[in-house]
């Protein structure tokens, strides 16, 4: 077999399977932190840990195909969460628009404004944490599905 410099060995490939759980811990910490509201060095470090999972899914060249298949499930969950959120925004924003148009047609008033969309708009940090949670939830689901369903 040809020598490939810096090629990952079995240990390094297996290491990714552990590393993603550290990323999941970072995400869970931040989900809890939304309610607790800690603002210290620990929270900053956990934000760094949270990067791991999505980064490994985005740049998978040193991982193996089984890890990528688990990450595919994780990314589907993340996309699903984003789609649901965007769908909610679509409905709410259109509701606001319809309200304004309805007021204009009914009474001719142009100044009527309703901004329910603001209620459904998350700040970027909460949205990022929510998407990371969906990602790690999807990974955990795929991992548990394989573990529980494995034949002896």
């Amino acid at each position: 077999m040809a020598y490939v410099p810096n090629a990952p060995d079995e240990k390094e490939r297996s290491y990714h399977y552990s590393l993603i759980w550290l990323s999941a811990c970072g995400t869970l910490f931040w989900v809890a932190n939304i309610f607790v509201g800690m603002d210290n060095m620990l929270s900053a470090i956990f934000f760094g840990a949270m990067v791991g999972g999505p980064a490994m899914a985005a740049f998978p060249n040193r991982t193996d195909e089984y890890f990528r298949s688990l990450c595919n499930v994780a990314m589907r969950w993340m996309c699903g969460a984003l789609a649901i959120y965007l769908c909610i925004l679509f409905l709410v924003v259109n509701g606001d628009l319809a309200h304004q148009a309805g007021s204009y047609l009914a009474s001719g008033e142009t100044g009527v404004r309703r901004s329910s969309a603001l209620l459904a708009t998350l700040d970027s940090r909460t949205l990022a944490i929510g998407l990371a949670l969906a990602f790690h939830g999807g990974y955990a689901f795929a991992w548990a599905h394989d573990k529980i369903g494995s034949r002896p």
Partner: peptide, 25 residues
């Protein structure tokens, strides 16, 4: 782990293939 080294995958991947949880490429 030895088979995984030969195949250039992780031990987890070999286990998933053996248990029928993952179809190899």
């Amino acid at each position: 782990a030895e088979l995984a080294t030969e195949l250039e995958v992780s031990r987890q991947a070999v286990n998933a293939i053996e248990t029928g949880k993952h179809d190899p490429s």
